[in-house]
Simulated scan of single mutants.
Amino acid sequence: MAPFLAYEDKGADSPLLPLVLVHGHPFDRTMWTPQLEAFAPARRVIAPDLRGYGASPVHLGVTHLSRFAEDIRELLDALAVDAFVLAGLSMGGQIAMECYDRFGDRVRGLVLADTFPTAETAAGKVARRETADRLLAEGMRGYADEVLEKMVAPYADPEVKAHVHRMMTSTSPEGAAAALLGRAERPDYRALLTRVTAPALVVVGADDEFTPVADAEAMHAALPHSELCVIDGAAHMPNLERPQEFNAALGAFLERVDAEAARGTAGSLGAVDGGR
């Protein structure tokens, strides 16, 4: 069966773990272009357009994080990807947490960028519902104009700003509204973080107003096997604003996860040999 989601699947066959990248709201898979370019030469990199975003079909009504997670599971099943490193930014980080809750046995490394694990507050639910109504009534442009310099820092490169604005204005209002309504009902992932057994990397832009450094520090404290990377000169999208720094942190993390996976495989083979 053909996958439901549109996606990028780049990189040659490699013994290294595939990297799965989950974009945020209201973006699409092109937000990961610097990471696809950096990591696809050595490993398989998969970046889907979430339901309602980019070239994937629009879902009307409400899209819960659980639905996004199941879409990703179905895509990875269709692509025969069993074990992988999972990275998500903002809403994508919350979807990554939901994925870990549902099929964490397949996740060998978890990257949470510019995100937070708590359930929505009462005021936050009202705000998300109001924004969803506004997007349906007015479209994306006014919203995109207002939040652009919170998504990326005011001092960000003009080309980065243009890319982020273009992604936002190209997003389906119906898809974005459905996701906002779903996020309003999201669960609290804080207890889940304490049970994550995979290595984790928490990344945040130093000037992020949506998910400030304090949120990243709290996740780092909750995760049993985590590292924290604060990227200077970036706001909510350090992977685009400071791709070299982001890729350096992600690359070092991937090397450690690959090494751990290789040791685990060698240990398993040793156990089999020892029983002969």
Rank of each mutant, 00 (worst) to 15 (best):
D188K: 06
D101C: 04
G88D: 05
G11F: 11
A200D: 09
F116P: 03
V22Y: 07
R134A: 09
V203C: 08
D13V: 15
P3Y: 05
P34V: 06
A178T: 12
V202H: 03
R108A: 08
E245F: 01
S170V: 08
T131F: 00
P117F: 03
A248Q: 13
L16S: 09
L228S: 00
P212A: 01
A113Y: 03
G175M: 09
P243G: 03
T30Q: 12
A222L: 05
P187M: 03
R73A: 13
A42K: 14
E120Q: 04
D258V: 07
G251A: 01
G61N: 11
D232P: 02
T265A: 12
T265M: 11
A214S: 11
A80I: 08
A38H: 05
P243C: 04
F27N: 15
D208M: 06
G267C: 09
S66K: 06
Q244V: 14
V20T: 05
K161S: 10
R195F: 09
A222G: 02
D13Q: 15
R108N: 00
C99F: 00
T169H: 07
R141F: 08
V45C: 01
A42S: 14
R67D: 10
A87I: 02
T211V: 09
A137F: 00
E185Q: 10
L201C: 02
V257F: 07
P41W: 14
H220M: 09
G175T: 02
A40E: 05
Q94Y: 12
A153M: 08
F210T: 07
V152F: 04
I72D: 05
R29A: 04
H220D: 09
Q35K: 04
V202A: 06
D258C: 10
Y100D: 02
V230D: 00
V257P: 10
Q94L: 14
V257H: 08
R73I: 04
G61E: 07
V62S: 10
F27E: 15
T171E: 14
A218M: 09
L201M: 01
R276S: 08
V160M: 04
M97G: 01
V111A: 02
D215N: 10
A137W: 01
T194D: 00
V164R: 08
H163P: 04
L19H: 02
M167Q: 14
A78G: 08
L193A: 05
A6Q: 04
L19T: 03
G205E: 02
A178V: 12
L60R: 13
G275K: 14
E159Y: 09
R141T: 10
R134D: 01
V22S: 12
E37S: 15
A144R: 13
A96D: 00
Y53C: 10
R263G: 13
D145T: 04
V45L: 00
L65M: 06
A222P: 05
T63E: 03
E146M: 12
R166Q: 15
A55F: 13
A96C: 03
G205R: 05
M31R: 01
H59T: 11
H220R: 14
D105S: 13
G267Y: 09
D28G: 04
E149G: 05
F68W: 10
